[in-house]
Design a protein around this nucleic acid. Sequence first.
DNA 1: AGATACTATAGTACAAGTGCTATATATTGA
DNA 2: TCAATATATAGCACTTGTACTATAGTATCT
Lengths: 203, 203
Amino acid sequence: MSLKHAILGFLSFSPAPMSGYDLKKAFDHSVRHFWPANQSQIYRTLAALTDEGLVAVDVVEREERLDMKLYQITDNGRTELHRWLSTPLPPQDCREPLLIQVFFGHNLTDTELLAVLQHEAQAIEERLALYAQIYTASLEMFNQEHGFDPRTLFLRLLTLEFGMISNQAGLDWLRAGITRLQAGDYTPAELHTLLGGNQEDNE
Amino acid sequence: MSLKHAILGFLSFSPAPMSGYDLKKAFDHSVRHFWPANQSQIYRTLAALTDEGLVAVDVVEREERLDMKLYQITDNGRTELHRWLSTPLPPQDCREPLLIQVFFGHNLTDTELLAVLQHEAQAIEERLALYAQIYTASLEMFNQEHGFDPRTLFLRLLTLEFGMISNQAGLDWLRAGITRLQAGDYTPAELHTLLGGNQEDNE
DNA sequence: AGATACTATAGTACAAGTGCTATATATTGA
DNA sequence: TCAATATATAGCACTTGTACTATAGTATCT
C-alpha cells in the first residue's frame, strides 16, 4: 500500500517524531497533488504500521486533554521504505471517467458534449494555475531555507512538474477536441502528431 | 459509479442484447485503456442495474448448460445514461504512486533512483507502442465497416489519443528528469517551459 | 464578558468500489 | 487428451471515502 510508504517517507525525513495530526498537515501541504489522504485513513494506517513494527509510538499523556501519540520510524521501517522506494511499481491502470463520457458521447448533442468538455477544460486551467502558484511558492520558501539539500528539493519540485506537464497535456487534448467538434472535423489525428513529443535523446 | 454508466453505454449502443460475458469482452476490447473492469465486477454491477430498473434481463434457459442472461437497457436506463453523460464530473484527484517514490527519492542513490525511473520509462514506451497499434488497427477496422457514424468513431479514437498524449507527456517528463539527475543538474525548471503547451487559441 | 469559531488531537462505524480467487459446466479446437 | 472459450456466480479482503464523536485551547467578533 502506497499510503503506508508515504507515511514512512514523512517519518524518515522528519527530524522530530510526528503525530497523526502533523502527518495530515504534511500530506495536505506537500503531496496532496498526487496522493491525497484523509484523516481517518492516516490514523488507521498508523495503527497498522505500529502493528507491523515499522513505526514506534510514544504516547504523551496530557492532563485534561486527549493523549497525543508521537510516531517515529523504526529500523525495520527504514528498511521497508528503502525496499519499496527502490522497487519498480507494477503497471498501474488508469481510470478516467471523463473518457467514458467521451467514448459514449455519441449519445449527446454537440452542445451537450462541448459543455462537458469545456467544463473540464476550465477545471484543469484552475488546477494548473494552482500548481504554478504552489511551484513558485515552494521555490521561494526553499530559497530562504538555507541548508536544504538541493537534490531533495529538485525531486520534490519534479513531482509538481509532473502535475503541470500532464495537466497541460490533458488541456491541449481537450482544446484540440473541442475545436474539432465545433468544426465538425472528424478526421482522426495522424499518429506522428501524437507521439514523439519533446525528443531529448536519452539512450 | 462510472462502471454502471459504461455498461449502460455499451447496452445503449448495441443493437442486440448482451450477456455479462459479451460485456466483459467489450470492455477488454475497447475501454480497458481508461476503465478496466474485471468479470465479477461486471456481473455484480449488472445485478445492481437490474435492481434499479436501468436494465432488463432475459434469461435464456439452455438444457444441460448454465442459463444465459441477456441484458437490454430500459427507458429509465437511457434517461440515466443521458443525464450522467451530460453532467460534468466532480473534480477527480489523481493518484500516482511513482510520484511518492520520486518525492521521497532522496533516500535513494542516483543509481537506485535512475533504475526506477528507467523502468517506468520503458513501461510507458511499451504502452505507447501498444496504443499506437490499437489506434491504427481501429482505423483500419472502421474504414472497412461501412456506415459507421464518423462522429462516433471520432469520439472513440479521441479516447485513444488521450492515452497517447498523456503517456507521451509522462515519458517526456521522465526523460528530462533522468537527464537532469544524471547530470547532477538540480536547477528547477522555469515555469513557462512547463505551461502553455500547444497553444491553439480556443476562446 | 460572552458567544462563536477555528485549531489541535484521536478515534469509530459504515459503505462503496475494486481485485483476486475459486466454483460450475458444456462446447469447440488442437 | 488437453486447452481454450462460453457463461455465471460467490466470498473475502483491501483501500478509500464520508460522516460522526470527543475534548481543550486559542482567537475573533459583538
